[in-house]
Design a binder for these strands. Sequence first.
DNA 1: CGCCATGTGATATAAGATAACACTATGGCT
DNA 2: AGCCATAGTGTTATCTTATATCACATGGCG
Lengths: 167, 167
Amino acid sequence: MATRATVGLRLKDHDHHHCISDAIARAEMLCQRNGARLTENRRRVLELVWQSHAPVGAYEVLEMLRKDGIRAAPPTVYRALEFLLEHGLVHRIETRNAFVGCPQPGQAHAAQYLLCDGCGDAVEIEIGGLARRIETRAAELGFAVATQTIEARGLCSRCQQSAPAGA
Amino acid sequence: MATRATVGLRLKDHDHHHCISDAIARAEMLCQRNGARLTENRRRVLELVWQSHAPVGAYEVLEMLRKDGIRAAPPTVYRALEFLLEHGLVHRIETRNAFVGCPQPGQAHAAQYLLCDGCGDAVEIEIGGLARRIETRAAELGFAVATQTIEARGLCSRCQQSAPAGA
DNA sequence: CGCCATGTGATATAAGATAACACTATGGCT
DNA sequence: AGCCATAGTGTTATCTTATATCACATGGCG
């Protein structure tokens, strides 16, 4: 199986180390502000999730932890991920059973995701009024929306080029 | 654990047997038309998925099959579900790892789902232009959408009443 | 100190999904 | 009818994803 965690790496396109360090910095600020404890475990897991822009499975995180010489079991990872989810630092990608860093933690937002089936990358977008539209229509049916999951799978522009028609 | 398969049953609200028989009838027509074989296994699995309006897990289907005296293993169920998915007779609910009957098979549609966390029921809706809107925005970013997953979780009107504020 | 809340470690197991291989049913063909 | 190819099924084993449970550690606070 392809190592999903690295497939989406695009170190040539941008300084990805920047993405990681920024994410950690934002997380530290946000936890400080909210009185939440960004422990060593949690920080490490967040870093690992941010290793690429492709969603990472919990067991991939586990492997990476172990490769870093840290003895960990599944609950360790899942607990860290749960914490990160609660604080909006990562999002869960339902169609992949995987997790990806949130570029804008802190701000409440109902995000949508574009998921490339070629390189695996996830791009978080927010289409204006979309979430609102769903809530409104649901309300008309008497349904109160709590959370939305909106994921579009397909091919990013680069992957369309490298895997053209009839591939 | 609550038996998800029965939670959503609303036999008092409507003649659910009608839902089931209609679904089977539509499936038979559609398979006839497409030259697909709705075998005994597949028909039975479709019936079982339609036992309620709540999405049903593959292993729940398996249990139900066994209670009906049919010796089956996971692949049997998954293969049937795969067939039904391919022909649009059921949809997969990603946020629940479960399957639900499609009320309008045959017509290509990018459906959205309202999923009640109270009774478990799933309601398929189609908000006009929503899918289009996502495709368009994705296209602006050079992304070609193949499939969309749109699921809103919350409470249906009935469950809002039975589990009011601060529950 | 004693207590409680929060976080962690470790083991076991639940829940969901698929791989692989052998066998059977079905429909088309000569 | 007999033969073949394809599609469908049965069976076993295994893989992936996710939690339950219990024991231990740490840190704040009366």
